[in-house]
Structure formats: C-alpha cells, structure tokens
Computed example of a mutant assay.
Amino acid sequence: MKKLTLLGGVTPAQFLKEFWHKKPCVIRQAIPGFAPIISREALFEMAGRDDVESRLVTHFRQKWEMQSGPLDAIPAITKRDWTLLVQGVNLHDDAADALLRQFNFLPDARLDDLMISYATDAGGVGPHVDSYDVFLLQAQGTRRWRIGAQQDLTLQAGVPLKILQRFAPSEEFDLEPGDMLYLPPNYAHEGVAIGECMTYSIGFRAPSYQELGESFLQFMTDSIDLPGQYADAELAPTTRPAEISAAMLAQVSAELNKVQFTRDDIAIFLGEYLSEPKSSVSFEPVKRPLTLDKFMALAGKRGVRLSRKTQMLYRGELVFINGESFAVSRADKALLSVLADQRTLDGEAIATASLDVAEALHDWYRQGWLLLEK
C-alpha cells in the first residue's frame, strides 16, 4: 500500500504536539475515496472463527446485550440497533495489516490493533470512554459521533457494557467514508450508525502501571538470587509465641532489600512484554521447512517479511521478537533493526547477513514468525 497522508494538512510532528494525548481532532478525507478493505460477508465469516476475537452488541427493545464470539448466527442486516465488533483484523488480513502500518509515525510499542465495527441503522455500543488513544476511520456509510470531555465517568448499572450513566456531549460530527476522528484516552464519546456503516478503529495500547508492575515482578522471579536461609541461632524463650519478632522482621527485611533491578532489567522486561503475542494469537510452524542453505538461497532472491502476527522491537543491543530477547552485535543490529522497522528485508540486505542472523531468520521461518516473499 502506498504511503498515505492520513493527517490532512497536519504533519505528524504537528499532530503529536497539538493533539496526541491532548484533544480530539476531526480529519476530513484523511484517506480520500476510501472504501472497505474487507467485505461485510468476509467480516461475518471472520466472526464465526474461534481464532478471532469478536463481540455482538444488540440494543433490541431498549435492552443492551452482548455476546462473545465465535458467533454462530448474525442478526439480519435489515434489523436495526445491532453492532458487530471484530478485533485484531490486522492479524488475519494483509490489507488490514497494511492499513494499520500506515500509522507507523507512532511507535510499534504502542500500536495495538485494527478493529472493525459493523453496524446497522442506529447501531452502536453506547456512550463510553476508552483508556487508550484511538483513530476512528469511517469506511462505509455514515456514523454520527458525539463527544465530550466530561469528568463524570459513572457507569450504568446492570448492563454488560461500560456505558456512561450521564453522557454530556459538547460536539457532534457526521463522518463519511475517508473521514477520521482521533480521540485521546478517557474522552467520552458515542458513535451511532446512520444506516448501514463500517468503522475501523486503530487503537494504541496503554498498559496500566499496576499491570506492568505485576508483570515485572513475575519477570524478575527468574533473576532473583538470594542464597542462604532464615536462621535464628540466638533465639531466646518467648511468652508471646504468636507474635512475629522484631528480629525476624529485621533479618528478612535486610535480605529482601538485597533484591535490586537495573535499567537493563527493565529494558529486557519491557521488550519481551510488549512483543509478547496476545493469548488468542497462534503461529503455524512450517510443515516441511527448507534447510538453512536452501532457505537463505531463496531469501537472497525473494526477500523475507515478518508475519502479520509477529511483533519485533529493539532497544540498544537488544532485539525482541514475539516475547523473546537476545543481544546482538552492532552489524547484526543494523540489519535486524531494518527488518523490525520496515517488516521486510530484500535479498540484497539478506546477502550481508552473518551466520548468527541467518540462523535466527531460518528459525523464525520454521516457527512461522517470518515468511519468504513470493
């Protein structure tokens, strides 16, 4: 896909300075003449698969209901007030992945996925807030957005969705195909379909510090080294056997305070954490893989590309791929960072690969993480 402008007359630097994480932005004809890249029928079929995350939201007779996929049945498209949400479409479709990658003026470490929302007339998911930045690209039909920077985030009780109880919008927009709305985190909004419509949501992950902290402590369990064990050779008789003594508390505190972590520990954790595939993602190993020599010969002619499902990042001498990390030399890092940034390597670049890189590429190919170009 040819590189798109996306931001209208605003440069990425201007957009990040003025809008990103700060305030909404409506971009008319962000992609002029845009049309759905996935048909309605293909989306419905995708929602029936067990390897695709999907949800059906209905508001029939003023009652909110939600059903998680895989979905055996979809309501008639002539019926009003329902919405189909299909998450991670970029993991399953090349065109969706290519569209998602158009947003690479933002870091891959923040990029989450492309979700498609299909709705019949009046369909929506109610007024709500998201905890992440999102671009809402209209692909088909018209969707009316009402938004507001309200402080009251009280939710309705007794409904299966996080719907705001007192929504107070301050602005309203009708988005046509090719128009796009950017919303920063925790900005109240509601989108309602005017007739049949499809909206693409490009979301950016923002893990909570609590989530990061819990995951980091789990990560550090493999690195903690505290030799010895508790001892109290000077123990004296007690008249309060149920009390934890000050001496025991002091001794254990002194040992646990020896647990230290470095900036490198955090870098390794962050790279592995951010590149770890979601639980719903699976790779299919090559059934009859080529030998290393044959693979490199073909790769040198065709080039290679990362699988849609692969997440590859780097920091300093460290390279991360699908939750794994390793340190590389400066020369190898130069080559692998091109693969991570561009998600492809041409044959000319592959011809310069060291044996270590060649073996890594071959291993990723065998696991289905990397593909030979056709």
Rank of each mutant, 00 (worst) to 15 (best):
D112S: 10
D50T: 07
Q87I: 12
F103K: 10
D152F: 14
Q140P: 04
L137Y: 05
A331R: 09
P184I: 05
R110I: 03
Y118L: 12
G323F: 08
A351W: 07
D346L: 08
L313V: 10
F15S: 04
W364I: 02
Y118W: 05
P36L: 12
P277A: 03
G213L: 07
V52R: 05
E284A: 12
G303S: 03
L313R: 10
R305A: 14
F103E: 08
W20A: 02
M220T: 09
L256V: 13
I74R: 03
I147Y: 01
N90V: 07
E211Y: 09
A331G: 02
I31F: 11
Q138F: 14
N90Q: 13
R80Y: 04
A139K: 02
T83D: 00
D264Y: 13
I224E: 05
L4D: 11
I202E: 00
V129K: 11
V10W: 06
G126W: 00
K3G: 06
T83A: 00
Q311G: 00
V86E: 03
D363P: 01
S282N: 11
Y273M: 01
R40M: 10
R144E: 13
A76L: 07
Y187K: 00
D130S: 00
K278L: 02
T199F: 13
A353C: 13
P227D: 14
G48Y: 04
A334K: 12
T5G: 05
F219N: 04
E18S: 06
D51N: 15
R146P: 01
M1L: 05
A236F: 06
Q62V: 01
A149D: 15
V259R: 01
V319G: 03
D293A: 13
Q251G: 09
K3N: 13
T310G: 07
Q150M: 15
R305D: 08
T120G: 05
D130M: 01
V304E: 08
L235M: 14
T142I: 14
D51Y: 12
Y314T: 00
T291C: 11
R146S: 08
Q138G: 15
A254H: 12
I116Y: 07
L111T: 14
T11Q: 06
D50N: 15
A122F: 13
P160E: 00
L175W: 13
F15C: 03
V10S: 06
V252M: 14
A246W: 02
Y187R: 01
L298E: 12
V10E: 05
E45F: 02
M1P: 04
L111A: 13
R101W: 04
D346Q: 08
A193F: 00
F173T: 09
R143A: 12
A242L: 15
D346H: 08
I194N: 11
R55E: 02
L181G: 06
G368Y: 06
S215T: 04
G69E: 09
P24F: 08
